[in-house]
Structure formats: structure tokens, C-alpha cells
Simulated scan of single mutants.
Amino acid sequence: MTAFSLEPAQLAWCAELRVLAAERLRPLAGKGEPGRVNRALLAELGALGLLPRLFTSGALELCLMRESLAHACTEAETALALQGLGAHPVHAHGTDAQRAHWLPRVAAGTAVAAFALTEPAAGSDAAALSLTATPATPGRPARPGGAGGWRLSGEKCWISHAPEADFYTVFARTTPGAGARGVTAFLVPADRPGLTGTALDMLSPHPIGALAFDAVPVTADDMLGEVDRGFRVAMDTLNLFRPSVGAFAVGMAQAALDATLGHTARRDAFGGKLKDLQSVAHQVAEMALRTESARLMVYAAATAYDEGAPDVPRRSAMAKLLATETAQYVVDRAVQLHGARALQRGHLLEHLYREVRAPRIYEGASEVQRSIIAKELYKNLEDR
């Protein structure tokens, strides 16, 4: 793979996105209610042509969108990303009928998508999920357009956009005791009988909830992909979106770094400016070094995905791990260098301090990313 650098057109597009986020999206985000889906913001993302790009962009372009939006409006970034996460399985693995019904509405921001994988007892260990798909008619296999089907019973938890989404990509166990090989993906509209949800009061400002499935009916026409092959649907989605979680983190880190540069250059301290203290200048330099390193790893992982490289799982895990851990460090240092003002409600850094924690957990916690990296390294050793 060649050394990475962005083209002038890509740099110009990123700059345009930052302006759009600041001028068009941030005001709408400010009018939203914390913990609720901001449908006006989603509609504007659709009107600006950003949501349709979820289905035409490669991994690198997705990263550039997420990083640029996050720099100026984390709420807009998260709304866009959650639409992509919930709808990508439909785009990549759905039937023509599923795509025709849902994707234009997702792209317009009029239908809210959600990715329902995590369970109370199966968060990081996604292969251990226990939401059960029981045959509706024992001994009668489900066929597209035909009889049969399943009943979904169990729980999902910590699902972004729940319980307000219009449809969910749901992963359920169709073969007991088969681990990752016994999971099937389903597209489940929110109005299916037996499906209920509750909102959870979380640190993150975007909506997160729990879902309860009480014999929710699904048929073969609701499947995404093949029976017992749903884990591949989940991993395909996560391998695409993990580098862009890193891009979200890089956008937040850059926003914190920019704020710190401005503050330390203006702030009077000990007869000079705060930046004149070597201890401060060195911290700012370290923040910049880590942010740029994370950015390059994110771009490299996304480029590997777009080129179909064989080491995408390792690169995606590395990018998400480094970028989210870096963002946590940079935002924390920025708060420290700003002092008490950064902890006031409404301050940029107070907002980023709340936002930056969750990405180290969702879509595979940092510990899971390290396990993926090690597994891929040893697998490569065995293949030699």
C-alpha cells in the first residue's frame, strides 16, 4: 500500500463539510432534545445529500465525512453514522424489495435505522447472543414468499436510536449451541407485534434504549443474507464502520486540540502566555502528535478496506483502538489545560468530554480490539 495523502479535492470537500456542520447542522442540533432522535437534523442531512452518500461511498469517504462533521457538530456526525450502521446490512445484504422500501427513506432522513446486536449478557462477545429465533411451525422450513418463519424472543440492550427507530437490523440465534455459525440477521420494522422498547438514560447525548421481543414474528422475507450466516453480516458492517468510529474520534480530538491551541495562545499566565510554559507546549505537541498518528492509521485502514486488502479486520481494529484511546487522551489534556471553565455546562470541552467516552466501548470495546489484533497476528503466523 502506498503512503497516504489526501487529494486537493478531498481536502476542499472536508473544509466544505466543516462549514456546513457549523452553519446548517449545529443550529438544528442545538434545538434537539438530549436522548431523543432529532428528525429535523436527519432531514437536513438528507437534504444536504450526506445520507445518500452512505450507500455510494467507500470506507475512506465515510471516514472523511465523519471526521469533518465531528469537528463541528458531533450530534450530526452521530446521526449520520447511526443511519449508516443500521441500514448498511440492508444495502449490502438485503433483498431488492427491502432495499427499495427502506433505503430511499433512510437517505432522505425520514426513516430512522438502528443496528440491534448487543444484549445484556452478550456485549463484547457478540457470538454469545441469546435472542432466540424459534420456528413458527416446527419442522416446516421458512421460504421467501412462503409459509413458515420464526418468533423472536429475548432482549437487546444499549441500542442506539432505540426505541425510536423505524426499523432494526436484528441478530438472532437460529441454531442453538452453534456460536457465531448459528446467527441470522433480520430486518424488523418497529411496528411488529410483540416488539417494545424503553429509553435508557445514558451519558451520551444521543438516544440509546433497550428492546424486548415477545414472540415477534419474522419470515424468510425479513432475512438479511442467509440462515445461520448473520454473523458475517454483522462483521462485514463492523469492519466497514470501525475505521470510521476512529474518524469520529479524530474529529473530536482535532476540535479539542484546536480549542487548546487558541486558549493557550491567548491566556495570560506567569508574566507571559500559557503557551510559553514548556510543560504546556510539550503537552500540546503530544496532543498533536497523537491526533495525527491516529488520523493516518484511520485513513490507512479505510483505504485497505476500499482496496479489498486481506488484513482489513486487523487494520480496522487497530484504527478504532488507537483513535478512540487517543481522543480520550487529547480531550482530557485539553480539559486540564483549560481548567475549570472547560467543566461548565455548554462549553465545547464539557460536551466533548461526555461524547468521547462511549466510542471506546461500542462496536467492540478497546479490549476486544486488542484481542482481534492479536488473533489476526497469530493467524498470519500460522499461515506462513
Score class of each variant (00 low, 15 high):
Q10A: 15
A21W: 05
E23V: 13
P27D: 10
G30L: 13
N38K: 11
R39D: 09
R39H: 11
G46C: 08
P52N: 12
R53I: 13
G58W: 00
E61H: 14
C63R: 04
R66K: 15
L80I: 07
A81G: 15
H88T: 11
A92P: 06
A100N: 07
W102A: 01
A111W: 01
V112F: 03
F115R: 02
A116Q: 05
T118Q: 07
E119R: 06
G123F: 13
L129I: 14
S130T: 12
T134H: 06
T134Y: 06
G139R: 05
R140T: 12
P141R: 03
R143F: 05
A147V: 07
G148S: 08
G149Q: 03
I159P: 00
S160F: 07
Y168K: 07
P176L: 08
A180D: 07
V183R: 04
T196E: 13
G197Y: 01
A199F: 07
P205N: 01
D221G: 04
G225N: 04
E226I: 08
P243H: 01
G246W: 00
M252T: 04
Q254T: 13
D258R: 13
T260A: 06
H263Y: 10
T264K: 08
A265M: 14
R266W: 12
F270N: 06
D276S: 13
Q283G: 10
A285P: 04
E286Q: 11
A294W: 00
A300P: 01
T303P: 04
Y305I: 10
E307F: 06
R315H: 10
L321D: 09
T324K: 00
T326N: 10
A327L: 13
A334W: 06
G346K: 09
G346M: 09
L349I: 01
L352W: 04
R354I: 05
R354P: 02
R357A: 08
K375G: 05
K375L: 10
L377W: 06
